[in-house]
């Protein structure tokens, strides 16, 4: 077992393979928010990498810091009341933190894009869908307005909106929830970005529509070679869509592994708890859950942050903060990782 002081380089491919340069590379990212208790660290030394064509699932309960991480990567955190306290964010070869506002707005929507849970709040109700997408294209590419409109219709067509040319002239409120999310995705891919961050993109949708959107995101990722960060709390969606998984708890990554490995054998008790808590569609067994609540940033327990809620905790767990340890091609932040035999289901 090789212990690396928290700053672990996570690799999606094995060292023997041809190394692919990752499109997203976050190293030791820390974010602080101002609270009633002063500046508090809400994201602590988060490192992750995403290779082109890969989908990284980021999972955790509310308050785990998964959305804050993504907003920090897009530099969308509020300027007042929050700050990046350390680490580096490199997206498509650019150091995001060093960019000025102009360069940043050129980057956002062009080389990196984001889709949110509520498409209605990100679409302007006063303009047609086509106008909004064409506007995004015009902002980033030197094209005529006619060309931009053509691109808008093309992207709507790409995301499977029937009669795209006609629908482009409609307003957001005339779209159903699923169609709105498709339109959001169309806007996100209209400038052919390299990196896409999706924050709970299907949580507000019905399951039949969710299945359509997941399929769309997967095929887009493959076809366009996108690196995608997929934030969700739904383990079923992760199992369906992602290539790798990073599990976050209380502002830290506690486990990181390939999709098949993590479901076959979780290496952190929190991951095991999350997987056990998923109600099964077939058969009936007594329900499991993770008792307790995520600690507040100013109220972090000593040692392992999950230790107060962990059924496997021993006194040593509370002694000192734990690093993320590399085990073969995955990593875990658990003291007892060697001795515990964790399983996704009984």
């Amino acid at each position: 077992m090789n212990v690396d002081n928290g700053a672990v380089l996570l690799q999606t491919s094995e060292p023997t393979q041809q190394p692919v340069k990752p499109l997203v590379s976050v190293k030791d990212l820390s974010v602080e928010f101002v609270t009633d208790h002063g500046w508090q660290r809400v994201i602590n030394n988060v490192s992750l990498e995403i290779a082109p064509g890969k989908i990284l699932g980021v999972v955790g309960e509310s308050g785990s810091g998964k959305s804050v991480t993504s907003l920090a990567m897009m530099r969308l955190l509020p300027k007042q009341g929050s700050r990046i306290a350390g680490g580096s964010i490199e997206i498509d070869g650019e150091d995001i933190q060093s960019l000025d506002d102009k360069a940043l707005s050129q980057m956002r929507g062009n080389r990196m894009a984001m889709i949110f849970q509520e498409p209605m709040t990100s679409l302007n109700p006063a303009y047609t869908i086509g106008e909004q997408i064409a506007e995004t294209v015009r902002r980033h590419k030197r094209v005529s307005s006619k060309e931009a409109w053509k691109r808008a219709v093309e992207s709507l067509d790409d995301v499977g909106i029937p009669n795209a040319a006609g629908r482009a002239r409609r307003y957001p409120h005339e779209f159903s929830g699923g169609m709105r999310q498709r339109a959001m995705i169309a806007m996100a891919i209209s400038c052919k970005p390299r990196v896409l961050i999706a924050d709970e993109p299907t949580t507000a949708l019905d399951v039949t529509i969710q299945a359509q959107i997941l399929q769309l995101l997967r095929s887009m990722c493959e076809d366009l070679g996108l690196a995608m960060m997929f934030i969700t709390h739904n383990m079923g969606v992760v199992a369906d869509t992602c290539d790798d998984v990073a599990v976050m708890y209380a502002g830290e990554i506690v486990e990181r592994a390939g999709i098949y490995e993590i479901f076959a054998q979780p290496k952190h008790p929190y991951t095991e708890g999350l997987l056990r808590a998923v109600p099964k569609l077939q058969g009936r067994s007594e329900l499991a859950s993770i008792p307790g609540t995520t600690p507040a940033p100013w109220d972090m327990p000593p040692g392992c942050r999950f230790q107060p809620r962990c059924p496997y905790a021993v006194p040593e767990c509370a002694e000192s903060p734990l690093p993320l340890r590399q085990i073969a091609d995955r990593s875990s932040r658990c003291l007892r990782v060697g001795e515990l035999d964790l399983k996704a289901s009984k």
């Binding site: 095991e272 708890g273 056990r276 808590a277 009936r284 067994s285 007594e286 329900l287 499991a288 859950s289 993770i290 008792p291 307790g292 059924p311 496997y312 009984k346």
Partner: peptide, 20 residues
């Protein structure tokens, strides 16, 4: 606990949930 869930191999998460 309901009778339709005979659970001899008591699982830590289920036990913790029962208590919670």
């Amino acid at each position: 606990t309901s009778e339709r869930t005979p659970d001899p191999t008591a699982d830590v998460w289920v036990e913790a949930t029962r208590r919670a």
